[in-house]
Amino acid sequence: MSQTVTPNPATVLTTPRVETSPGNPIGEFTQETLALTKRLFIQLKRRPSSLIAGVIQPLMWLILFGALFQNAPQGMFGESVNYAQFLGAGVIVFTAFSGALNAGLPIMFDREFGFLNRLLVAPLSTRFSIVVASAIYILLLSFIQTAVIVTAGAFMGAGLPGGLGLGAIAFITLLLVLGVTGLSLGLAFALPGHIELLAVIFVINLPLLFASTALAPLSFMPKWLQIVATLNPLSYAIEPIRYLYLHSDWTLSSIVMQAPWGEVSFGSALGILAGFAAVALLSIQPLLRRTFA
């Protein structure tokens, strides 16, 4: 006598159905990406501690560092009215960078628990939907964190850029997150386990923060550190956002940083970030193809 097994509704992953016709790869890719992205948000809903910590930590940076340099001499941090205004850009960028650097952890845990193997043998139209879903998830979390930091900074006296400035901040965050997420996902497929991935994250996280213009202007640094900071992609995200806070009449030709090798305009900084994202995403393509094969 056969027995009918009813699946547990709590374990069934549902997603809005995208109407696809036979042989429609775009529709199938969209449906798969939505389903995998929703799975990640379901995990976040069940364990929201990572999002809560990702919001509380930058707020603590703003409050503690803002209070620490409250009595700093006027003009010590360039044109900034106060250190909260100077620090806001650095906190936005570093928070987005840290979140993107952790993007490979869900993939790594899926590898270790065997769920990734199930996805790789599933009849997906393209396995790249696994990577795209992770990128979308991290990008949306970064936008949430950025919105909280911008709002908190406005209450702390940092001001608020205009509508076009906020759109530019979102675009800069997008470019940085895409590049760092690509590198993190590449590490998730290249390294043997999550211990090694966490070790890499711990090693490069804070050094990249201190070797950027997040906490101090470029002019305060020794010559060798100035050179290192101008090689750091975080600086090319921080300085344009900082310029947006200080100037409402910005253009792509506005000079946002005086590097040791010359002036860096707003447009040049965006170009460097776009190049960084493109190189990072293209460099992991061969590794992803070998893994998915």
Rank of each mutant, 00 (worst) to 15 (best):
R290W: 13
Y236D: 02
N205M: 11
S134A: 12
I130K: 01
F115K: 11
I92K: 02
P9D: 08
I107P: 00
G157V: 04
N71E: 14
G182M: 14
A214I: 00
L34V: 12
L87Q: 09
G27T: 14
E263P: 00
T14S: 15
R242C: 05
W61F: 13
I92W: 02
L225C: 02
A147I: 07
P123T: 13
A53G: 13
M221K: 05
Q74E: 15
N8S: 15
S80V: 08
L34T: 04
F292G: 00
I238P: 07
M1L: 04
P233W: 04
M257F: 14
L62F: 05
W250N: 11
S49K: 09
E19W: 13
T20M: 04
A211M: 12
L160W: 11
A274P: 07
L218K: 04
Q85A: 10
T151N: 02
V200G: 01
N24C: 04
G66L: 07
F109Y: 11
I227L: 11
V200R: 03
L288G: 03
S50K: 08
L183K: 00
S21K: 12
G275L: 09
T126L: 10
E79W: 06
L178S: 00
F292P: 00
I255H: 12
P48M: 03
T15Y: 10
A259F: 11
A259G: 03
L34C: 03
L198K: 09
A122H: 14
L197N: 06
A10Y: 09
L160K: 03
G159T: 09
P106Q: 06
Q285N: 01
T20W: 02
A72C: 05
D110P: 01
E79G: 15
Y137V: 05
S80I: 06
G88F: 10
T230M: 10
S253H: 14
F220T: 10
G157E: 09
Y245D: 11
G162S: 06
V132L: 06
G99M: 09
I138E: 00
A214L: 03
E239A: 15
T146C: 08
A53E: 11
P233S: 04
A277C: 05
L44V: 07
I284W: 00
S219Q: 13
I144T: 06
G186I: 06
P7C: 03
V148L: 06
A216K: 14
V264N: 00
S125T: 14
V81F: 14
Q3M: 12
